[in-house]
Design a protein around this nucleic acid. Structure first.
Lengths: 230, 230
DNA sequence: AGGTCTTGTTTTTTCGAAAAAAACTCGCCA
DNA sequence: TGGCGAGTTTTTTTCGAAAAAACAAGACCT
């Protein structure tokens, strides 16, 4: 169970890795790129991933690609068809429903514990991240995605269960693939929903926060499902 | 999120893959072998995995090994230290505690739904698997591990949530690494605990089953923790 | 002694070539 | 028409060599 978010949590618009003492390996970089492309929908669900084509596209050798692909396949973002190459995991209506149900449960669990343990630093963090999130619209793509994920992570920041955090992240990332499949509803008040969550946390009102979280996740899912059925 | 149990669920004492139309790839086989060795403790926690040594030990080339290792690293069974090779993930007291808490919750959730949906086929399956499990002792290693996992999977077989099943399996496998770290307590009644779970399910007594499950998992954990502190 | 520079050794990372499979083409036949 | 099979092309899988990085052992300096 490796933490699957960028190592240091910093966000860079161009996707470059931050400089550090030890340069990261190529496999790592390509993994990150591919992962991002899959999550953002640039590599669309179900698409066959031919090694030759990827070699061109990402400018690296076979082994590097295959290492990255196996990694993604263990995460479930890519499926490997024995001896018939790789393919971006398809999106399935039922999986989305199933996943959302689990997500709601896990997020609520984490939220409960977060609100129990929350302190000043938490509040500061939340406000700061919310402020940053408010600068972007969902249609802004990458930057919005980044701060959105960060905000949701910050919401449950005081929850001291790495395993739970890990599972949350796993499901969050998977959901992103679905979210990107649809154009966003223009008369939905995204920011408002997040502000409501923020407020409930500042009030330490666990019941309210959990209810809002369920609504928030369910609403997104319903919109995606609606577009599925068209 | 790929299902991480052997593809077809059959068990073979010698660990050979079942014959099928399309032979599986070498990477797949090595992944499975390495995975098993890590879970069974044959490759002990924290151990540095040198490529050269593995090349000898498993008789395959670099790429094959690295693909398998990356896969395991995505599952969290191995950690990759950028440019400093791989190592079996160490076991951590806190992680075990954390994981157990989550496991209890997920298992209970699944159990609830299973008991709701359970039917005749379920009962037959459970009895059959329990019978097979009863033929082995925990010290028998692989075969016991196999039927033990199968039994726990069968307990929640009617739960129709692939995502939940997936997460359960993930945590179950991880726990196995901890379980194997200790000699089993001789005056613990393993089989009895499992029979009690079986009975509660046949009675469709969800409350009882959930309580037993919590006890079952917690007891194992406590034994492991005790040996940690020595 | 403690630090650090140099140099040689080990280990990991990355690449492209060769082997092995799979997919495709096209002619043949029923 | 539709299925079968030989031969060809494409694509994947596997390997070992070469490059790059990490590590270890002394030599030297303060």
């Amino acid at each position: 169970m490796v933490d699957q978010s960028p190592v240091d949590g910093t966000y860079r618009a161009d996707g470059t890795a931050p400089l550090s003492k030890t340069r990261s390996t190529l496999t790592d970089q390509i993994w990150q790129q591919l992962r991002n492309d899959v999550l953002s929908g640039r590599q669309s669900p179900g698409k066959r991933l031919r090694l030759d084509a990827l070699k061109e596209e990402y400018g690296v050798g076979f082994s590097t690609l295959r290492e990255a692909l196996w990694r993604l396949s263990a995460e479930g973002l890519v499926v490997s068809n024995s001896r018939k190459g790789f393919q971006v995991s398809p999106v399935l209506r039922d999986e989305l429903i199933d996943m959302t149900r689990l997500r709601i449960l896990l997020e609520q669990m984490a939220l409960d514990e977060a609100i129990q343990n929350g302190n000043d630093e938490w509040e500061a963090r939340l406000l700061s991240t919310f402020h940053r999130l408010s600068k972007y619209k969902q249609t802004d793509g990458q930057p919005w995605d980044h701060w959105h994920k960060t905000f949701h992570n910050d919401l449950v920041w005081p929850c001291r269960s790495p395993v739970l955090q890990q599972l949350r992240n796993q499901l969050h990332d998977h959901s992103r693939r679905y979210r990107h499949a649809v154009r966003n509803d223009p008369n939905r008040d995204d920011l408002g929903e997040h502000r409501a969550l923020l407020d409930a946390c500042l009030e330490r009102n666990a019941q309210k926060a959990k209810a809002l979280m369920a609504q928030h996740l369910q609403l997104t899912t319903d919109l995606v499902l609606a577009s599925f059925d068209r």
